[in-house]
Structures are given as C-alpha cells and as structure tokens.
C-alpha cells in the first residue's frame, strides 16, 4: 500500500496554508501506473500535478474540491 501524498515543500505553506484538489484524473478504484499524473492540485492561482507513487489500484480519500496541505494523503495505491 503506497500513499498518494502531496509532497512537503510543493508550495510554501507559510504563505498559502491550503490548496484544493482541482481534478482527479482516474476514477476511484482504477488501475494506475507508477509515475502517472493522477490528480491536479490548485494552490491560490497555480495548478500542480500529483503523480502515482506506485502501480496498482487507486483509492481516492480526498475528493475533488477537498482542502489539502503539503503532506496531506489524498489517496492510496493498492499494489496487490
């Protein structure tokens, strides 16, 4: 099981504490490949991509429009 985590330091949380999940690019339960872009995060005005840490089945834990911070786990990859 690998966490889909927003990397620490992806943005400066001292300036902008929170962002949101702008889009999921796979459905909950979909197969994904390692390194694929699975989600878009929006922080203030900027859009950033989140990639899958491993191949496997994606379980979404923070839905679209959910509020996130650096370090937040937004999903899991079940590597089977």
């Amino acid at each position: 099981m690998a966490d889909v985590r927003i990397p620490e330091g992806l943005w400066d949380a001292d300036i902008t504490p929170e962002g949101v999940v702008a889009n999921w690019l796979y459905r909950d339960g979909s197969e994904v490949d390692a390194g694929e872009t699975v989600a878009e995060i929006m922080v203030e005005k900027a859009t950033m991509e989140i990639t899958a840490p491993a191949a496997g089945r994606l379980a979404i834990t923070v839905a679209k429009d959910g509020v996130v911070r650096p370090g937040t786990v937004i999903g899991r990859i079940d590597e089977q």
């Binding site: 929170e18 962002g19 949101v20 929006m42 203030e44 005005k45 509020v67």
Partner: peptide
Amino acid sequence: RAYMEGKTPKF
C-alpha cells in the same frame, strides 16, 4: 484584496 474575498482556498 477585495477580489480574493470568497476565492480561497479554492480560486
């Protein structure tokens, strides 16, 4: 500043 009112955290 006024413009950002109601636009955080989601712009």
